[in-house]
């Protein structure tokens, strides 16, 4: 079939990203895993652009229910996603740097969610 391969790759990429987020302890690597996820999204969007017409007109019996697909919308969306990703990486690196400056580490295990409660328990 026409659009299976991009989707499968996208799924794999996304899964890889998720795996990275879950398994990696290094903040930078986690950031990169997130990038993978975003790129998977991009892949889907671009692939969808190519297959959307057939998806809708070929399979959909009551196609009238859907307006004409928006031209190249996916690709445009992908452009925005790239921008978002770039911004996130920029901000993210700044944050990680700041964290590194304070703690001399970028290991996420040390980031607690409950710092103060322990002190109070006394």
């Amino acid at each position: 079939m026409h659009a299976v391969i991009p989707y499968v790759i996208a799924a794999l990429l996304f899964a890889l990203g998720v795996y990275g987020v879950l398994r990696r302890r290094n903040a930078i690597l986690v950031l990169m895993a997130v990038e993978l996820m975003l790129n998977a999204v991009n892949l889907i969007l671009v692939a969808a652009d190519a297959s959307i017409k057939s998806t809708l007109s070929g399979v959909q019996p009551e196609a009238w229910a859907y307006p004409a697909p928006e031209p190249k919308a996916g690709a445009i969306f992908a452009l925005f996603v790239i921008v978002i990703a770039a911004a996130e990486v920029g901000v993210g690196l700044a944050i990680v740097l700041q964290y590194y400056r304070l703690r001399r580490a970028v290991v996420l295990d040390e980031v607690p969610l409950h710092e103060h409660e322990e002190q109070e328990a006394r």
Binding site: A48, T55, E70, A73, F77
Partner: peptide
């Protein structure tokens, strides 16, 4: 974003 992309892929709507 993945959700939006999947939805777009299935319905073509943004």
């Amino acid at each position: 974003l993945l959700g939006a992309a999947l939805n777009y892929a299935a319905t073509g709507a943004l």
